[in-house]
Amino acid sequence: MSAVSVMEKPATPAQEQPFGETVYHLQKGDQGIALDIKDFNLWYGDRQALHGVNLTVERGLVTALIGPSGCGKSTLLRSLNRMNDLVDGLSITGKVVLDQVDIYDPRTDVIALRKRMGMVFQKPNPFPMSIYENVIYPLRVDGVRDKRLLDETVERALKGSALWDEVKDRLDQSALGMSGGQQQRLCIARAIVGDPEVLLMDEPCSALDPIATAKVEELIDELGGHYTIVIVTHNMQQAARVSHNTAFMYLGRLIEYGKTETMFTTPKLGRTLDYVTGRFG
C-alpha cells in the first residue's frame, strides 16, 4: 500500500498532460512513401488498442517504433501485414495504404499482401525442417521447383543475412539445431528471400544475447539500404543506432514521430524526452 503511494508522488507532469496532437518532424526519404497509415483505430473486442494513428513509412528508410509495454507498437506492426486477422473479435477503422491500395479493402488478397512483406518475429521461429528448406519456404509455397533457382536463392538469401559462411556446409541439417542468433538470422533470410517491399521486425533481438544482437543490428544496417524496414524495439539504443525515423507511442496513441537523431536528443514533447531518457517506461 505504501509502495503504491511512492509511485504516485513523483508522477511526471508530462504524463498528466492530456494527449495533444501528434508532433511530426520526420526525415523524408528520396523514394517516396511505402506505407501510409491513416486514422487507424483498432479494437480487441471492446478494448481499444490503437487510437487514430497517422503515420507514413518512408520507402528505403528504417522506421523504429518505441514506447512502453502495451502501448500498441506491436499491434500496429502486425496490422501492416494483417497478422492480427488471426485474433478473434478484432475490429478496425481507418486505412493502411500500400501502393494506393488500402490493405484492409475487402478486395485485397491477404496472401498476396503478405508475399510483398517479410516479417521477423520476437522469438526466432524456424520451421522444423532443414536450413535449406527453411530459407526457401516462401518459394515452396509459390510452387517453385527449379533446383538451380532454389540453390541460387538460398545462397543469396543466406549471404544477405550474413549466415552463409556459418551454415553453408550443413544446409541439410535441422534448423532447430542452430543457436538462437543464427536462428533469428535464418528467419531474416527467410523473410527477405522473396525480395519483399517492406520488412517488418517485431523486437527481433529481444531473445538474443548481446553478440547475436550486434550481428542482427549490423544486418539491419546493411539491409536498410535495400529494404523499407519497420522495427519495433524496446531497446532505445538499438532504435537510435539502426533507424532513420522513430515513432514514439504511448497508450495506443502516436505521440511523436520524427527524425531519430532529434527524437533521442531534443524531442519536441516532454513525454518523449521522459521516455527516451528512461524517466518512465
Binding site: A112, R114, P128, V141
Partner: peptide, 24 residues
Amino acid sequence: SMREGSLACGASKWQTIRMIVLPR
C-alpha cells in the same frame, strides 16, 4: 509462432497446415 511464421511468408492456411502444422 510457427503458424504465424508460415502465414507471414505468404502461405495460405492449408499450406501452413500441410507443410508446418501437420508434420510438427
